[in-house]
Protein backbone atom coordinates (compact mmCIF):
# COMPACT_ATOMS: atom_id res chain seq x y z
CA UNK A 1 0.00 0.00 0.00
CA UNK A 2 1.34 3.36 -1.04
CA UNK A 3 1.35 6.47 1.16
CA UNK A 4 1.44 9.95 -0.37
CA UNK A 5 1.85 13.30 1.31
CA UNK A 6 0.69 16.38 -0.57
CA UNK A 7 1.85 19.80 0.67
CA UNK A 8 1.62 18.61 4.25
CA UNK A 9 2.27 21.03 7.10
CA UNK A 10 2.01 20.32 10.79
CA UNK A 11 1.99 22.76 13.71
CA UNK A 12 1.99 21.61 17.33
CA UNK A 13 -0.43 23.46 19.63
CA UNK A 14 -1.93 25.46 16.80
CA UNK A 15 -3.41 28.81 17.89
CA UNK A 16 -1.51 29.08 21.13
CA UNK A 17 1.61 30.69 22.53
CA UNK A 18 3.31 27.31 22.29
CA UNK A 19 2.60 26.93 18.57
CA UNK A 20 5.53 25.32 16.79
CA UNK A 21 5.66 24.41 13.12
CA UNK A 22 7.37 21.03 12.94
CA UNK A 23 6.64 20.20 9.27
CA UNK A 24 6.59 22.57 6.33
CA UNK A 25 4.97 21.88 2.99
CA UNK A 26 6.06 18.28 2.55
CA UNK A 27 5.31 16.43 -0.66
CA UNK A 28 6.49 12.85 -0.64
CA UNK A 29 5.63 9.32 -1.75
CA UNK A 30 6.39 6.14 0.13
CA UNK A 31 6.28 3.50 -2.63
CA UNK A 32 4.42 0.24 -1.95
CA UNK A 33 6.37 -2.92 -1.02
CA UNK A 34 9.62 -1.00 -0.49
CA UNK A 35 11.68 -0.15 2.55
CA UNK A 36 12.07 3.60 2.93
CA UNK A 37 14.41 5.04 5.54
CA UNK A 38 13.90 8.53 6.99
CA UNK A 39 17.04 10.23 8.27
CA UNK A 40 17.86 13.67 9.61
CA UNK A 41 19.25 15.44 12.62
CA UNK A 42 17.50 15.30 15.96
CA UNK A 43 14.51 17.64 16.00
CA UNK A 44 14.17 17.66 12.21
CA UNK A 45 10.59 16.33 12.42
CA UNK A 46 10.97 12.62 11.66
CA UNK A 47 8.79 11.38 14.52
CA UNK A 48 6.19 14.03 13.77
CA UNK A 49 6.10 12.96 10.13
CA UNK A 50 5.46 9.31 10.90
CA UNK A 51 2.68 10.14 13.36
CA UNK A 52 0.80 11.55 10.39
CA UNK A 53 1.03 8.24 8.56
CA UNK A 54 -1.57 6.44 10.66
CA UNK A 55 -3.69 9.33 11.75
CA UNK A 56 -2.26 9.81 15.23
CA UNK A 57 -1.84 13.41 14.19
CA UNK A 58 -3.89 15.14 11.53
CA UNK A 59 -2.03 17.47 9.15
CA UNK A 60 -2.79 21.13 9.84
CA UNK A 61 -2.49 21.79 6.11
CA UNK A 62 -2.35 19.59 3.02
CA UNK A 63 -3.38 15.93 2.86
CA UNK A 64 -2.07 12.45 3.53
CA UNK A 65 -3.29 9.75 1.16
CA UNK A 66 -3.09 6.22 2.52
CA UNK A 67 -4.06 3.66 -0.13
CA UNK A 68 -7.28 5.30 -1.23
CA UNK A 69 -8.17 7.05 1.99
CA UNK A 70 -7.50 10.76 2.31
CA UNK A 71 -6.69 12.36 5.66
CA UNK A 72 -6.82 16.11 5.99
CA UNK A 73 -7.86 18.53 8.69
CA UNK A 74 -11.54 17.79 8.11
CA UNK A 75 -11.16 14.05 8.73
CA UNK A 76 -13.23 12.78 11.67
CA UNK A 77 -11.58 10.57 14.24
CA UNK A 78 -14.12 7.78 13.57
CA UNK A 79 -12.67 7.30 10.11
CA UNK A 80 -9.19 6.66 11.44
CA UNK A 81 -9.65 3.11 12.69
CA UNK A 82 -9.35 1.63 9.22
CA UNK A 83 -6.18 3.63 8.66
CA UNK A 84 -4.72 2.30 11.91
CA UNK A 85 -5.58 -1.24 10.84
CA UNK A 86 -3.71 -0.76 7.57
CA UNK A 87 -0.72 1.10 8.96
CA UNK A 88 1.01 -0.52 11.93
CA UNK A 89 3.23 1.69 14.04
CA UNK A 90 6.13 0.58 16.20
CA UNK A 91 7.34 3.36 18.48
CA UNK A 92 10.77 4.09 19.84
CA UNK A 93 11.46 1.92 22.90
CA UNK A 94 8.35 -0.06 22.03
CA UNK A 95 9.15 -2.47 24.89
CA UNK A 96 7.64 0.14 27.23
CA UNK A 97 4.13 -0.35 25.89
CA UNK A 98 3.67 -3.96 27.06
CA UNK A 99 1.10 -4.37 29.82
CA UNK A 100 -0.67 -7.75 29.79
CA UNK A 101 -0.07 -10.62 32.21
CA UNK A 102 1.40 -12.85 29.53
CA UNK A 103 3.34 -12.38 26.33
CA UNK A 104 0.65 -14.17 24.33
CA UNK A 105 -2.14 -11.95 25.69
CA UNK A 106 -0.18 -8.83 24.94
CA UNK A 107 0.19 -9.79 21.29
CA UNK A 108 -3.53 -10.72 21.12
CA UNK A 109 -4.52 -7.23 22.31
CA UNK A 110 -4.29 -5.61 18.86
CA UNK A 111 -6.13 -8.26 16.83
CA UNK A 112 -8.93 -8.34 19.44
CA UNK A 113 -9.29 -4.57 19.22
CA UNK A 114 -9.55 -4.81 15.45
CA UNK A 115 -12.43 -7.25 15.77
CA UNK A 116 -10.82 -10.68 15.52
CA UNK A 117 -12.30 -13.55 17.55
CA UNK A 118 -10.41 -14.95 20.56
CA UNK A 119 -9.48 -18.04 18.53
CA UNK A 120 -8.16 -16.05 15.56
CA UNK A 121 -6.24 -13.75 17.87
CA UNK A 122 -4.47 -16.69 19.53
CA UNK A 123 -3.51 -18.10 16.13
CA UNK A 124 -2.22 -14.75 14.92
CA UNK A 125 -0.28 -14.14 18.12
CA UNK A 126 1.39 -17.55 18.00
CA UNK A 127 2.21 -17.16 14.32
CA UNK A 128 3.83 -13.75 14.69
CA UNK A 129 5.64 -14.51 17.90
CA UNK A 130 7.27 -17.43 16.11
CA UNK A 131 8.09 -15.18 13.15
CA UNK A 132 9.93 -12.65 15.31
CA UNK A 133 11.82 -15.47 17.01
CA UNK A 134 10.17 -15.75 20.43
CA UNK A 135 10.34 -19.23 21.89
CA UNK A 136 7.12 -21.13 22.73
CA UNK A 137 8.28 -21.46 26.35
CA UNK A 138 8.03 -17.70 26.78
CA UNK A 139 4.40 -17.36 25.63
CA UNK A 140 2.93 -17.70 29.12
CA UNK A 141 5.53 -15.57 30.89
CA UNK A 142 4.96 -12.01 32.03
CA UNK A 143 6.43 -9.67 29.41
CA UNK A 144 8.38 -7.78 32.09
CA UNK A 145 10.44 -10.88 32.82
CA UNK A 146 11.97 -10.87 29.35
CA UNK A 147 15.15 -9.10 28.28
CA UNK A 148 14.90 -5.70 26.61
CA UNK A 149 15.59 -7.13 23.17
CA UNK A 150 13.00 -9.88 23.61
CA UNK A 151 10.43 -7.36 24.83
CA UNK A 152 10.99 -5.32 21.71
CA UNK A 153 10.33 -8.38 19.55
CA UNK A 154 7.12 -9.04 21.44
CA UNK A 155 6.06 -5.43 20.84
CA UNK A 156 6.84 -5.86 17.14
CA UNK A 157 4.78 -9.08 17.04
CA UNK A 158 1.98 -7.17 18.77
CA UNK A 159 1.82 -4.77 15.84
CA UNK A 160 2.37 -7.37 13.09
CA UNK A 161 -0.47 -9.48 14.52
CA UNK A 162 -2.86 -6.69 13.50
CA UNK A 163 -1.89 -7.64 9.91
CA UNK A 164 -1.01 -4.15 8.67
CA UNK A 165 -0.14 -3.52 5.04
CA UNK A 166 2.34 -0.80 5.97
CA UNK A 167 4.73 -1.03 8.90
CA UNK A 168 6.17 2.19 10.32
CA UNK A 169 9.02 2.04 12.83
CA UNK A 170 10.68 4.80 14.87
CA UNK A 171 14.33 3.91 15.45
CA UNK A 172 13.73 0.18 15.86
CA UNK A 173 17.38 -0.66 16.43
CA UNK A 174 18.21 1.98 19.03
CA UNK A 175 19.83 0.53 22.14
CA UNK A 176 20.25 -2.95 20.65
CA UNK A 177 23.61 -4.66 20.32
CA UNK A 178 25.10 -5.14 16.84
CA UNK A 179 23.89 -8.70 16.33
CA UNK A 180 20.36 -8.02 17.59
CA UNK A 181 20.12 -4.98 15.33
CA UNK A 182 21.33 -6.99 12.36
CA UNK A 183 18.80 -9.74 13.13
CA UNK A 184 15.99 -7.25 13.49
CA UNK A 185 16.84 -5.59 10.19
CA UNK A 186 17.03 -8.87 8.27
CA UNK A 187 13.71 -9.87 9.83
CA UNK A 188 12.17 -6.65 8.48
CA UNK A 189 13.69 -7.32 5.06
CA UNK A 190 12.20 -10.82 5.11
CA UNK A 191 8.76 -9.52 6.06
CA UNK A 192 9.00 -7.04 3.22
CA UNK A 193 9.69 -9.71 0.59
CA UNK A 194 7.55 -12.51 2.07
CA UNK A 195 4.39 -10.54 2.84
CA UNK A 196 4.80 -7.60 0.50
CA UNK A 197 4.89 -5.21 3.45
CA UNK A 198 5.62 -1.57 2.83
CA UNK A 199 8.13 -0.51 5.47
CA UNK A 200 8.95 3.01 6.60
CA UNK A 201 11.68 3.38 9.16
CA UNK A 202 13.21 6.30 11.03
CA UNK A 203 16.85 5.63 11.81
CA UNK A 204 20.06 7.32 12.89
CA UNK A 205 22.20 4.45 11.61
CA UNK A 206 23.67 5.13 8.18
CA UNK A 207 24.82 1.50 8.12
CA UNK A 208 21.21 0.33 8.30
CA UNK A 209 20.23 2.74 5.53
CA UNK A 210 23.08 1.65 3.27
CA UNK A 211 22.55 -2.03 3.84
CA UNK A 212 18.78 -2.42 4.01
CA UNK A 213 16.87 0.55 2.57
CA UNK A 214 15.51 0.81 -0.98
CA UNK A 215 14.82 4.53 -0.62
CA UNK A 216 16.03 7.22 1.67
CA UNK A 217 14.42 10.51 2.67
CA UNK A 218 16.58 13.21 4.26
CA UNK A 219 14.84 15.73 6.53
CA UNK A 220 16.09 19.05 7.81
CA UNK A 221 14.21 21.63 9.90
CA UNK A 222 10.83 20.12 9.08
CA UNK A 223 11.38 19.91 5.32
CA UNK A 224 12.52 17.20 2.91
CA UNK A 225 15.94 18.06 1.52
CA UNK A 226 16.63 14.89 -0.46
CA UNK A 227 14.73 11.85 -1.58
CA UNK A 228 16.78 9.24 -3.41
CA UNK A 229 18.41 5.79 -3.33
CA UNK A 230 21.05 5.06 -0.67
CA UNK A 231 23.70 4.47 -3.35
CA UNK A 232 23.13 7.92 -4.83
CA UNK A 233 23.17 9.53 -1.41
CA UNK A 234 26.34 7.92 -0.13
CA UNK A 235 28.46 7.25 -3.19
CA UNK A 236 29.74 10.81 -3.39
CA UNK A 237 31.07 12.86 -0.54
CA UNK A 238 29.56 16.18 -1.66
CA UNK A 239 26.29 15.63 0.17
CA UNK A 240 25.99 16.99 3.69
CA UNK A 241 24.91 13.71 5.25
CA UNK A 242 27.10 11.59 7.43
CA UNK A 243 28.50 8.61 5.48
CA UNK A 244 28.30 4.96 6.53
CA UNK A 245 31.46 3.68 8.18
CA UNK A 246 32.45 1.62 5.12
CA UNK A 247 32.37 4.75 2.96
CA UNK A 248 34.25 6.81 5.56
CA UNK A 249 36.94 4.16 5.75
CA UNK A 250 37.27 4.09 1.99
CA UNK A 251 37.44 7.86 1.84
CA UNK A 252 40.42 7.81 4.20
CA UNK A 253 42.11 5.20 2.01
CA UNK A 254 41.54 7.40 -1.04
CA UNK A 255 43.66 10.14 0.50
CA UNK A 256 46.79 8.00 0.35
CA UNK A 257 46.07 5.61 -2.44
CA UNK A 258 45.26 5.91 -6.09
CA UNK A 259 41.93 4.07 -6.07
CA UNK A 260 38.54 4.30 -7.76
CA UNK A 261 36.69 7.29 -6.37
CA UNK A 262 33.18 5.89 -6.19
CA UNK A 263 32.45 5.03 -2.55
CA UNK A 264 31.33 1.59 -1.42
CA UNK A 265 28.35 2.05 0.89
CA UNK A 266 28.32 -1.14 2.93
CA UNK A 267 30.70 -3.72 4.29
CA UNK A 268 30.22 -6.32 1.59
CA UNK A 269 30.85 -3.78 -1.13
CA UNK A 270 33.86 -2.45 0.72
CA UNK A 271 35.43 -5.89 1.01
CA UNK A 272 34.81 -6.65 -2.66
CA UNK A 273 36.29 -3.34 -3.70
CA UNK A 274 39.36 -3.80 -1.54
CA UNK A 275 39.90 -7.31 -2.85
CA UNK A 276 39.67 -6.00 -6.38
CA UNK A 277 41.92 -3.00 -5.87
CA UNK A 278 44.57 -4.44 -3.60
CA UNK A 279 45.32 -7.75 -5.28
CA UNK A 280 48.42 -9.31 -3.66
CA UNK A 281 50.15 -9.31 -7.06
CA UNK A 282 49.34 -6.87 -9.83
CA UNK A 283 46.41 -4.49 -9.21
CA UNK A 284 47.07 -1.01 -7.91
CA UNK A 285 50.31 -0.04 -6.23
CA UNK A 286 50.94 -1.06 -2.65
Amino acid sequence: MEIKLKNVGYTYHLNSPMAFTALKNITLTFPAHQLTAIIGKTGSGKSTLIKLLNGLEIPTSGEVVIGNQVIDKYTKSKQLNLVRKNVGMVFQFSENQLFSETVLKDVMFGPLNFGKSEQEAVELAKFWLAKVGIDKDLFEQAPFELSGGQMRRVALAGVLACEPKVLVLDEPGVGLDYVSNQNLMSLLKKLQSQFGLTIIMVTHSMENVAEFADHVVVMKNGAIVRQTKPIELFSTDDSKVELPEAAQFYLKLMKNHQIENELPINKTELINRLLKQFKPNGGTHE
Partner: peptide, 15 residues
Amino acid sequence: NLRNAQKSRGVNFEK
Protein backbone atom coordinates in the same frame (compact mmCIF):
# COMPACT_ATOMS: atom_id res chain seq x y z
CA ASN B 1 3.24 8.32 23.79
CA LEU B 2 1.52 5.36 25.40
CA ARG B 3 -1.87 6.53 24.13
CA ASN B 4 -0.40 6.70 20.65
CA ALA B 5 1.12 3.24 20.93
CA GLN B 6 -2.14 1.65 22.08
CA LYS B 7 -4.21 3.63 19.57
CA SER B 8 -2.00 2.12 16.89
CA ARG B 9 -3.04 -1.28 18.20
CA GLY B 10 -6.66 -0.40 17.60
CA VAL B 11 -7.72 1.06 20.95
CA ASN B 12 -10.43 3.62 20.46
CA PHE B 13 -10.37 5.90 23.48
CA GLU B 14 -13.16 8.10 22.27
CA LYS B 15 -15.96 5.73 21.55
